[in-house]
Amino acid sequence: MKRFFKRNAPAYVFLTPWFIGFFLLALGPILASLYLSFTRYDMVADPRWVGLDNYEYMFERDRRFWKALEVTFTYVALAVPARLAMALGVAMLLDKGLRTIGLYRAIFYLPSLLGSSIAIAILWRQLFAADGVVNQVLAKFGIEGAAWISDPDTSLYTLVVLAMWQFGSPMLIFLAGLRGIPRDLYEAAEIDGTSKPRQFFRITLPLLAPVIFFNLVLQTIEAFKTFSSAFIISNGTGAPADSLLFYTVYLFNEAFKFFRMGYASALAWVLLLIIGFFTAVTFFTSKYWVHYENERD
């Protein structure tokens, strides 16, 4: 007992803040929200146990829940690949044949850093407004643009474009990854007369797979969590016609506008399961397409 204490005491002392935080702010709340998800709770009266009612309502009768899922999944399916493709493309462009890339790198990264700020969301609303800049540019080419943000058919795409604009951080990670690929592989391929596309599929992609995997997991989780921009652009409601009803926006409104805390907790748990599921699937399938090279670095 004394030895156990002696061995562990310093580490546990250093971990004390994290322990408190973990139990009080992470594990505790996760379990508490699981409990709350089986109750009706408006923050005035005590939570009342209702069994599976919340989940039943959610899956069987709540059309807005399905709408929120649809919006969020569409967004994730479009924004994540688009952003990663941008990031990889630009990273490859910067990686080879240029002497100085510092300034480009900085310019391309800046939007990622500003991206979640309210100022940018406000800016985006105006850029894609019916009389906004985008339509003015299109008008120059004789194209009549849509109303973008106020049109339910197009509003989600403005957020996808916003996501693409912020390809900076996966780009930096790709750049670091590309730097790790030995140059002589390309030189050898060049001598053998291997075409550029073939070099990309045979050398770049396989050797970059761990980095792609890493970016994919992070960006997917990130995309599921999208909140501020959707909240601001949709006036906090998911409008127009619920086309911007991101899952997080719906959850927020159920909880803090209508004070349906029990139901919102059920929504939160479903979100947790969805993200957990996607992460698990990515990890599980990764062994078929990600190969780590132990010899190298």
Binding site: R7, F22, L25, S33, I221, W269, I275
Partner: peptide, 29 residues
């Protein structure tokens, strides 16, 4: 540092990276 439960705690810490803030929001509130 070496201590009992290191791997478990580290795994738990990494898992919290994945948890959306929205999931802990209501009980925290």
């Amino acid at each position: 540092l070496q201590f009992n439960g290191k791997n478990l705690f580290f795994a738990l810490m990494m898992m919290t990276l994945m948890i959306p803030y929205h999931v802990v929001l209501i009980p925290q509130y």
